[in-house]
Design a protein around this nucleic acid. Structure first.
Length: 455
RNA sequence: GCAGGGGUUGGGGAGUGGUUAAACCCGGCAGACUGUAAAUCUGUUGCCUAUGGCUUCGCAGGUUCGAAUCCUGCCCCCUGCACCA
């Protein structure tokens, strides 16, 4: 597949994965095999789908023969990047960070090839290795000396915070130095000459590029990366280190990618089931399907172009969405995850709930919340409303809400539209005398179990 | 610190004594149409033992038959100015 393109740069470019690049980046990538890195913030214990762009960036680099390094920010995470934040961050504890780092590391390992035999094997490095050790004096002399406060203050992320009365702490203000320092260390110790990141990180990234240029010069005449950007006419002397930034992904309607189902789906099966991940990508709008295939999958250019054709000629088949969903689910959760996702999808959208046994329902509706009623409740004439709101799994939060949903025909009990929220339940409402399936709209389910009679 | 402005239901933002559970927009949810899409249209969007009741408009009191709307105190925010650096 990598022979679709002569080099990663062209590959990434075709996939619209490049928003910014340092001058000369493309030439370097087409000429030599480099070591590159991307940083991941340990703000949560799982990566989410928003991280897929950088992850796939590293994967593509590796496929093209470059050596990828994923930095997990066990050190920078202790400070917090002010970019895109209107308020000071809550500092995470050391334990939280280390736990998050471990979780992220595990997830990265399923994407990148870490085989020791591989000459360009991937590495995960925790920047805590050096950031938690470096001494303040050393840091200020070696790194701080190369930055002017004037430049640091002009940073967008800093300015927006300065304009607000909450201000910005010195801690977060220093963040840009730390990220630059990371790059410097990797440059010196791993011969890492490339950094990639989101375009929102571009300022921080250039900080590192410039720091390396100042210390390791190369061509003395090399203007700073930022200067070269503005004066790109002149033939630039080669920079010792380079960077690429990918664009921030939005949907075709301009929403932030991944916002739909209450927060971005994560890559952790305990938080976001394979089914939900599958559904997320399956439900992508036509206009987004091909862009996402390009960005997130390893499918060949030929294949993607064929799918693009399919979207145009037979959008109703949703071949692109199906492929996207399958690719993503198996990439994140493996073939077993994909099987599960498909099985649940089939049960929910093509199957007949009433034909399934209680056991099958439990297996199929892994997404459902769960509730429980006792036989005694039944004898006392418990109403449907009470069962769903009080004893249910929390899918409907109040009786008023249930009333409205019922009035709109949105509630189905065991597959049948319900009309009376106040009717008492009977044994007949429980499939196999065990479980009642409450469905809200098309996509959410609540299983209410009848507690086995213990006499 | 001084002067002025303001805190309303998820967000924005009306409302300055009485059909105000509170306009309107966005968002959310659901329905229709479709392709489990987008767009569009429709309904809905505080809670409840429901032709009624209860609780909401920064917090706590007070005036009044009646307050989100008036008074008092407190908390928080914004805008000018000053002070410090």
């Amino acid at each position: 597949m990598s022979n679709d393109f002569d080099n990663v740069y062209e590959d990434l470019q075709w996939r619209n994965a490049i928003a910014e690049a340092t001058p000369g980046a493309q030439e370097v990538l087409s000429r030599e095999k480099v070591t590159c890195y991307i940083g991941f913030d340990p703000t949560a214990k799982s990566l989410h789908i928003g991280n897929l762009v950088p992850i796939m960036g590293l994967v593509r680099m590796q496929r093209h023969g470059h050596t990828p390094i994923a930095i997990v920010g066990g050190g920078t995470g202790m400070i917090g990047d002010p970019s895109g934040r209107s308020e000071e961050r809550q500092l995470l504890t050391l334990e939280q960070i280390d736990e998050n780092v471990a979780g992220i590391q595990r997830q990265l390992e399923s994407f990148l090839d870490f085989s020791p035999s591989l000459p360009n094997r991937a590495q995960v490095i925790n920047n805590a290795d050096w950031l938690r050790k470096v001494s303040l004096i050393e840091f200020l002399r070696d790194v701080g000396k190369h930055f002017t406060v004037n430049t640091m203050l002009s940073r967008e992320s800093v300015r927006t915070r300065m304009d607000r009365d909450v201000g910005i702490s010195f801690t977060e203000f220093s963040y840009q130095l730390l990220q630059a320092y990371d790059f410097l260390r990797l440059f010196e110790e791993q011969n890492c000459t490339f950094q990639m990141g989101g375009s929102d990180q571009w300022g921080n990234i250039l900080g590192g590029v410039d720091l390396i240029r100042r210390i390791h010069g190369g061509a003395q005449q090399a203007a700073s990366a930022s200067e070269q950007r503005t004066a790109s006419k002149m033939q630039p002397a080669e920079l010792p280190a380079h960077a690429l930034a990918y664009p921030l992904i939005t949907t075709s309607t301009g929403e932030k990618f991944g916002k739909s189902i209450g927060g971005a789906p994560t890559l952790d099966p305990d938080q976001t089931s394979p089914y939900r991940l599958y559904q997320f990508f399956f439900n992508v709008a036509d206009a987004d399907a091909v862009p996402y295939l390009k960005l997130f999958t390893m499918l060949s250019r030929e294949r993607i172009e064929a799918l693009q054709e399919a979207v145009e000629t037979a959008p109703g088949e949703r071949e692109a969405q199906l492929t996207l969903a399958a690719e993503m689910t198996s990439a994140v959760h493996g073939d077993r995850g994909l099987d599960e996702a498909r099985r649940v999808t089939h049960a929910l959208f093509s199957g007949d709930l009433r034909k399934l046994s209680a056991t099958e329902l439990r297996g199929a509706l892994t997404e459902a919340s769960h509730g429980m009623v006792r036989p005694a409740d039944l004898h006392n004439g418990i109403t449907l409303a009470s069962a769903v709101t009080v004893h249910g799994g929390g899918m409907v939060s109040s009786a008023s809400e249930l009333r409205r949903l019922v009035a709109q025909g949105a509630i189905k009990i065991n597959g049948n539209v319900e009309t009376d929220p106040l009717r008492p339940l009977t044994d007949a409402d429980f499939i196999d005398n065990q479980v009642m399936v409450v469905q809200r709209g098309k996509k959410s389910h609540d299983l209410i179990w009848l507690e086995p009679d213990q006499r």
